[in-house]
Design a protein around this nucleic acid. Sequence first.
DNA 1: GGCAAACTTGCGCAATGGGCAACTTAGGTG
DNA 2: CACCTAAGTTGCCCATTGCGCAAGTTTGCC
Lengths: 220, 220
Amino acid sequence: MDPQPSALSSGAPTGMSTGVRGGASGGAPGGLRERKKIATRQALHEAALRLVLRDGLAGVTVEAIADAADVSRRTFSNYFSGKEEALLYGDRARMRDFLDTIRSRPAAETPWTAMRETMRSLRDTFGARGPGVTAQLRVLRKQPSLIVSQGAIFAELERELTAEFVARGATPALRAHLLAGTCLTAVRVATAQWIEEDGATPLPDLVDEALHILRPAFDD
Amino acid sequence: MDPQPSALSSGAPTGMSTGVRGGASGGAPGGLRERKKIATRQALHEAALRLVLRDGLAGVTVEAIADAADVSRRTFSNYFSGKEEALLYGDRARMRDFLDTIRSRPAAETPWTAMRETMRSLRDTFGARGPGVTAQLRVLRKQPSLIVSQGAIFAELERELTAEFVARGATPALRAHLLAGTCLTAVRVATAQWIEEDGATPLPDLVDEALHILRPAFDD
DNA sequence: GGCAAACTTGCGCAATGGGCAACTTAGGTG
DNA sequence: CACCTAAGTTGCCCATTGCGCAAGTTTGCC
């Protein structure tokens, strides 16, 4: 029915759910319980995506999404705090990927190098999202409350990234924070451009271009 | 009762309300009607601020704010779409100031120069916010939904600023957008730092410092 | 004075988020 | 395997919210 049902989500649901609500509460990684939770979360996400793309954010109720995923409205709340969060599940996953990747870079690398190499190694992940995705994203971008929720993700990411940069020796605090915020702005802006020009240039290339402009300010 | 009732708002409510809901609907600038509207908006804003600082965002209902400002809950909705918007009224006003200022710079100035001069001329406006404000802001910053709504303001600002930079000859689109986003990141980060160190360094100085770091990437 | 536009208010309604308690199920234990 | 416990699901309930609508009320202007 949908050629790319989870085009906007993380390809393979990258584990780590552990406790239907955020709290880490230990659980067998491969257990049935865990797999079911991930499946439910994914189902809710995809249902939300499908319905919202069809009817617009305002035209879809939480109940409708829950129904489409065969769970109760109450259960929806157990997984996501609202429609926005369900829709941005994929973005959150990508955020975790990004953080995991950059954290696993050699500790000796400077912030800028770690950033550059991280983007290089995620090239495939981000570049893989094929055509059609831009069109969908264009629709979703219309919804103000979504952009806003996106902001929450970036804010969190910025905090984490700043900490990572500080750990890599960025000083002073202002510069570390600025570096993190600026890198994320590069990603945001590149993505916006990518959507606008309908994927004409591969996303990773646009990010590279943006980072290249910033290089004179931060490359050590 | 409150030493700085509107510390977070714009000092003098910079006119331009014109139509209780956004839509510009012509109205005498000095008329009683217009003055009442501005007063009501300001009263709602201050009531929101006071109550939220006391009881936390979740601990205050729209109704309580409306009561404190002597209007009905329904009227609150006529002015603001929610608690967050009421709280951020001051930020929106500052955003408009900023845009008005930069737009009125000579058209021949490059984006970077216009930006620098705008910050210089707003130095007093932003620097004037005295001590105590940082403490309040620190409290407000705890509320996730507020940061998120702040993001909405910045997003809008980024769009407008990008357009302004394009008008001033910034190319290509990616660079113009990146420049706008980066400048705003500088402001955001500087403000965060300012709050964190409790106003030790004047905000304008921190913004200058941030912009100085970025200079190598954008100064033409 | 008097009219029209603008604003306020109360009422109603659907949607939402979240607490609570009963029920169901996965996972480990003797 | 029977059994127990913790985790997850669901229905029920309620306070809050955003908004449309249709009176009232006020302001601005001829």
